[in-house]
């Protein structure tokens, strides 16, 4: 079974995002970029299925600027067999990415697409669901456990107030939550080997997809700041403040 894993290049999760001085976007220049952490979990899930003999080939895909090659090399070092970059300088919305992925799915015919549940830059949480809808496929989002069968997959997912297990018909899209696994690190020998693995570059035009956005970013700004309060000395003072000043208990 072939599996497709989309990976996104994002600002590293340890770096606090700040608006550009003119509010036109988020400052990214000179800052460390990494693979979206939820996509690392998706890669790890695919690799474990391959190690278990249930998956024959893992194809990593990234949509974005030329620099996304770096993210794809990371995916190859982790265990992807080959990679596809859909190269564009346009700022891509989740719907455009889903359309690009759809064309690649039709070309590659995977039985499963595993996506991160959201990217930690735009926090949209849309691409996997949109791809499933465009393909008319089943979806299981926010997965914390995956059991793969031949025609179905059993996926445990996190819902408000508990867990549910879904039986989904394959082919399908699964999106990963934090609990699914703990991703491995790429080893040095594998990083060297990854340089020789195939990486194909296409453009949205090659795939016949219009990626023009219908959303206009008007500005980005710091959120309203919350004022820090005071330190209290003991429990008695805390209770007094909560009762008589804040009046919340």
């Amino acid at each position: 079974m072939k599996v497709l894993v989309p990976v996104k290049r994002v600002l590293d999760y340890n770096i606090k995002a700040r608006p550009k001085a003119d509010g036109s976007g988020v400052e990214l220049s000179g800052l460390k970029m990494s693979m979206n952490p939820f996509d690392e979990i998706a890669m790890e899930a695919a690799i474990r299925l391959k190690e278990a003999g249930q998956v024959s080939e893992i194809i990593a895909i990234s949509c974005g600027t030329q620099a996304c090659q770096e993210t794809l090399r990371t995916a190859l070092a982790l265990g992807a067999d080959r990679a596809v970059l859909v190269e564009t300088d346009e700022a891509l919305q989740p719907l455009a990415v889903a359309k690009l992925l759809k064309v690649l799915v039709l070309r590659e015919q995977p039985r499963l697409v595993i996506c991160g549940k959201q990217a930690i830059d735009d926090d949209a949480n849309q691409t996997g669901q949109m791809l499933a809808a465009l393909l008319g496929w089943a979806q299981a989002t926010f997965a914390s456990r995956i059991e793969l069968g031949t025609d179905h997959a059993s996926v445990t997912r996190e819902i408000d107030g508990g867990l549910e297990t879904l039986s989904i018909t394959l082919p399908a899209v699964i999106t990963t939550d934090l609990r699914l696994n703990e991703p491995r690190y790429a080893t040095l020998p594998n990083i060297m080997k990854a340089k020789k693995k195939p990486l194909e570059t296409l453009t949205p035009a090659d795939l016949g997809v219009d990626v023009t956005s219908r959303l206009t970013l008007l500005k980005v700004a710091e959120p309203p700041a919350r004022q820090g309060g005071i330190k209290v000395n003991d429990v008695a003072e805390l209770l007094d403040k909560l009762k008589n000043e804040a009046k919340v208990i």
Binding site: L95, A98, D123, Q129, M130, A132, T141, D160
Partner: peptide
């Protein structure tokens, strides 16, 4: 933007060919 809304809403947006505004 709950576990439920996040789950099905993007499917509606994609089938309408509309960009979704999340959260």
């Amino acid at each position: 933007a709950s576990a439920s809304g996040k789950n099905w809403m993007p499917r509606v947006a994609a089938l309408l060919d509309v960009a979704q505004l999340s959260d």
